[in-house]
Design a protein around this nucleic acid. Structure first.
Length: 430
RNA sequence: UCCUCAGUAGCUCAAUGGCAGAGCAUCCGGCUGUUAACCGGAGGGUUGUAGGUUCGAGUCCUACCUGAGGAGCCA
């Protein structure tokens, strides 16, 4: 019976067939140990000289790493096996050999591995990360779907800059026009929320910033919810519920993968609502007290974010940033107009900003003023102004960067390992 | 774009300005419980590129190329 390795426990004592690849091989002359992987897991197959034909035993002796193989044998529980089970091999079929496989079980440098990313993802560690990413993406979709949000995807080709701040990738759009790859579904989300109430978009996002840090990719995935008739408070509550749900799902369903990564889960288990909420003013005060060279009015740098998040055992919501350092569409705080009704949620352990959002400017005159002040082309924003012309309501939303969440939950040094093929400043291959 | 660091065998790395080395991988041999198995042997080099200093450069100097980390900007 053909089975997947992840289901092996249900077949103890039975004869099973595994279809996969040879991950590693050890031998003691008259006994071979073949570590096989099939995409669902890794298992050690034991082949003794007395258990198979001489030809099969000889063949296994020369089997190279990553050769594709189909093997049959008896599933047996064994306390010595990392997964709890082994297979006593009775038959082996080599589908295709692999010669001089470059990603050996030994150490390799980052550049070497990145050039071979298409092979690197076969390793147990990368496998675990991508499985956790899958779980996180699924959890995000379930979270919004279960709460009545409608998935309404926003365009990837856009006619103009959404926020006017970051550098965009441009592409030739047929003969005459230039299109830009989206940096946020935000503005379209607002229109969708006016049509559907509560919506979210979930897709790739592109930033042509020449950022060269462990927290940046040029192409990354972002989920952006937007709600009509919602306030800053509503999005903070939604954000902390989302983060808590996603972390809980990863702990619940991907414990094995987190163990592979040797992730300390104690910190993740503390992620429960409510999150501490800190005004920008209070955050600035903390940074001053810690002796950092931070001036009120500026945005937080990487070090600032790390210091702030270290004050708490769970993510922290920092709200009401100065309007001057936030996007033009942020609504001013009625009590203090120099502040915006904005929020960033910072992950613990120095992983930085994972959520950014707030309440949107819903007043026509003020929005028009802001568009002009930011030197944005008004005609490109006429449709966006329409949302304030025809039944404007308070509304709010945020964006959450998937790769940063995955890096945090997995405890990774760099976001480049959280996506199968990362796109970075100097990385477009493979 | 700026700052810092790195580039030597297929991979990971050594080598005081003085003979180009090790482990792993590969190939050959040994081993019936290995977990990155181990033991013995063999093959494997335009020291990123181009100049310069020196009796002599992997090593020092200059420029360039490639990459990494960080800054700015952001999720």
């Amino acid at each position: 019976m053909t089975v997947y390795i992840e289901q092996i426990a249900a077949h103890e004592g039975q004869e099973v067939t595994i279809r996969g690849w040879l991950h590693n091989r050890r031998s003691s002359g008259k006994i071979h140990f073949l570590t096989v992987r099939d995409g669902t897991g890794f298992i050690q197959a034991v082949m003794s000289k007395s258990g198979v034909s001489p030809e099969t035993f000889q063949q296994a002796d020369h089997l190279s790493q990553e050769s594709s193989i189909v093997l049959t044998g008896t599933a047996r529980a064994d306390t010595r096996a990392p997964g709890g089970f082994e297979i006593d091999v009775t038959a082996l079929d080599v589908v295709a050999p692999a010669h001089d496989y470059p990603v050996t079980p030994k150490e390799h440098g980052v550049d070497y591995l990145m050039d071979r990313r298409h092979l690197w993802i076969r390793t147990e560690r990368q496998n675990a990360i991508l499985r956790i990413r899958h779980e996180i993406v699924n959890a995000i979709r379930d979270f919004f779907n279960d709460r009545g949000f409608i998935l309404a995807d926003t365009p990837i080709f856009t006619p103009a800059a959404c926020e006017g701040t970051t550098t965009l990738f441009s592409v030739q759009y047929f003969e005459d026009a230039t299109a830009y790859l989206t940096q946020s579904g935000q503005l379209y989300n607002e229109a969708n929320a006016m049509a559907l109430g509560r919506v979210y978009c979930f897709g790739p996002t592109f930033r042509a910033e020449k950022s060269k840090t462990r927290r940046h990719l040029t192409e990354f995935w972002m989920v952006e919810p937007e709600m009509a008739y919602a306030t800053l408070d509503d999005v903070i509550t939604l954000g902390e519920a989302l983060v808590t749900f996603v972390v809980g799902r990863a702990l619940d369903r991907r414990a094995r993968e987190l163990r592979v990564l040797e992730r300390e889960t104690k910190n993740l288990e503390q992620v429960q609502t409510p999150f501490p909420r800190l005004s920008y003013d209070e955050a600035a005060k903390i940074l001053k007290e810690k002796g950092l060279p931070f001036e009120w009015g500026g945005d937080f740098g990487g070090t600032d974010e790390t210091v702030l998040s270290e004050q708490f055992d769970r993510p922290v919501a920092v709200h009401r940033y100065p309007s001057a350092i936030k996007a033009f569409y942020m609504k001013p705080d009625p009590d203090r107009p120099e502040l915006s009704l904005s929020v960033d949620i910072l992950a613990p352990e120095g992983y930085g900003e994972i959520i950014g959002g707030g309440q949107r400017l819903d007043n026509y005159e003020l929005l028009l003023e802001r568009i002009k002040a930011h030197n944005l082309p008004q005609d490109a924003f006429e449709w966006y102004l329409d949302l304030r012309r025809y039944g404007s309501v308070p509304h709010a939303g945020f964006g959450m960067g998937v790769e940063r969440v995955v890096a945090w939950i997995c405890g990774l040094e760099h976001v480049r390992e959280t996506i199968p093929y990362p796109r970075m400043l100097y990385r477009l291959y493979p």
